[in-house]
């Protein structure tokens, strides 16, 4: 069986990144948009681990970075969800199209 190489993993992580970007721009539900950002962050984690394993196996920077990214992503999601909960109380909706108090 063929072992996956660096290029396979980089392809997956790039695909994940752009799926995240696409989701962020097309989805209208705030929670789904947040999930898309998480996809972006996970693609980054994948990138770091792949680079660390295949290119810089003697270093640990990439692994550490991944751990920090996961922690920060959790913190960011906590704040974002708190804000979204408050927003849903004010607007009775979590649709970005409905949050249009300010324009141009």
């Amino acid at each position: 069986m063929m072992q996956p190489g660096l290029y396979h993993i980089l392809f997956i992580s790039a695909a994940l990144f752009f799926i995240g970007v696409f989701g962020f721009f097309t989805r209208r539900n705030l929670i789904t948009m947040l999930m898309s950002v998480e996809l972006i962050l996970n693609s980054v984690n994948l990138n770091f681990i792949a680079f660390n394993k295949y290119l810089w196996a003697d270093k640990l920077d990439g692994l550490f970075f991944t751990i920090f990214v996961i922690a920060i992503a959790a913190a960011e999601a906590a704040i974002a969800i708190a804000i979204i909960i408050n927003l849903s109380r004010n607007f009775q909706s979590i649709d970005v199209e409905k949050t249009d108090e300010m324009k141009f």
Binding site: F17, M33, L34, V37, I40, L41, I83, M102
Partner: peptide, 23 residues
């Protein structure tokens, strides 16, 4: 709350972009 939502989502997105660059 609308301002905070726009701020957190755009900053989360931009830090995602930053991280991809860093990786």
């Amino acid at each position: 709350s609308e301002a905070a939502m726009k701020m957190i989502l755009s900053s989360a997105f931009s830090s995602g972009v930053l991280l991809f660059g860093i990786s």
